[in-house]
């Protein structure tokens, strides 16, 4: 922490002489303490997962959801300060609904990520505010079906082009991660929070770029990755929360939903089993990964 004592870290929006905004970096620290979040972009949908550390035995299991719905087809999960995450979600919902009232159509995730990135970035520019203490992963299935505008009642001309371009393909799975600096990038797989290093290492093994992984398999992988990433902080108990958005003809019909209880439990069981197997084989490998962090 070379910044301490220099004074450049005491105020937001102020650069240090070597071009850093320390308040943003401290916000990143807050994120690094949060429960691990994972997002996987599969060929036919997106999976979101979060490791929810149980901070008290008095908390009701399954309550206090950490994954939020922004629009029918969009989900958000975040690591870091939970209230900041809530505000972030609230902003995302406002953006999505205002987009709808302007364009009479759902917002694409690319556009939403852009709006949210801009919003988060604005919190690095003023001394009167502090940056967001969250890194958020947003996932969506942008409909591939030909959508009418919201409120459309007819089906348009039955002959002729009708303003449509033949052969264009729209929509599909989409995954973005937005950081406290306002930086946002699209990913095949994204991880943030305490166990992000281990999670990223696991994600890289999946070869997501070639889009072979189905959403059902993605659910299992996400569950397993959360368990792997939890390894280092084994003392604390956690709860696994997962949601998914499949294609329009998939299990969620293009909507963002919680992963059903039976599928979640199955994935968790498989994850635990994989962990046991791993423990026996490669104890040394896990240690190696710990060193990286």
């Amino acid at each position: 922490m070379t910044s301490i004592g220099t004074g450049y870290d005491l105020q937001n929006s102020v650069f240090s002489p070597d071009g850093r905004n320390f308040q943003v970096e401290y916000a990143v620290k807050a994120v690094e303490n949060g429960g691990t979040c994972v997002g996987i972009r599969c060929k036919d949908g997106v999976v979101l997962a979060v490791e929810k550390i149980i901070t008290s035995k008095l908390l009701k299991p399954g309550a206090n959801k950490r994954i939020a719905t922004v629009d029918h087809n969009i989900g958000v999960v975040s690591s870091g300060l939970v209230p900041d995450g809530r505000h972030f979600v609230s902003r995302a919902r406002d953006e999505a609904s205002s987009w709808r009232s302007t364009y009479k159509a759902p917002i694409t995730l690319a556009a939403l990520a852009g709006r949210l990135g801009g919003y988060v970035q604005a919190y690095t520019l003023y001394s009167s505010v502090r940056p967001f203490g969250v890194t958020a992963i947003v996932g969506a299935w942008d409909s591939e079906a030909e959508l009418g505008v919201d409120g459309q009642v007819g089906s348009g001309p039955s002959i002729g082009a009708g303003g449509k371009v033949a052969g264009t393909k729209a929509g599909g799975p989409s995954l973005y991660m937005i950081e406290p600096s306002g930086l946002y990038w699209g990913y095949y797989g994204a991880a943030t929070g305490k166990g992000r290093q281990a999670a990223k290492a696991e994600l890289e093994k999946l070869d997501l770029a070639s889009a072979n992984l189905s959403i059902e398999a993605g659910v299992k992988e996400a569950a397993r990755i959360i368990y792997v990433a939890h390894e280092d902080s084994k003392d604390k108990e956690f709860e696994l929360e997962m949601s998914w958005i499949s294609s329009t003809d998939g299990p969620t019909k293009g909507r963002h939903q919680e992963v059903p209880k039976d599928i979640l439990e199955e994935a968790e069981k498989a994850a635990k089993k994989a962990m046991e197997g791993e423990d026996e084989e490669e104890t040394t490998a896990t240690e190696g990964e710990t060193m990286q962090e």
């Binding site: 959801k65 939020a68 719905t69 629009d71 029918h72 919902r93 999505a96 609904s97 709808r100 009232s101 009479k104 919201d150 409120g151 459309q152 009642v153 909507r255 939903q257 919680e258």
Partner: peptide
Amino acid sequence: QYIDRLLNSLDIAENYSS
């Protein structure tokens, strides 16, 4: 059509919570 959009946004808001 206005009412339809109203119902659409109501449905979205209703589904924020599962």
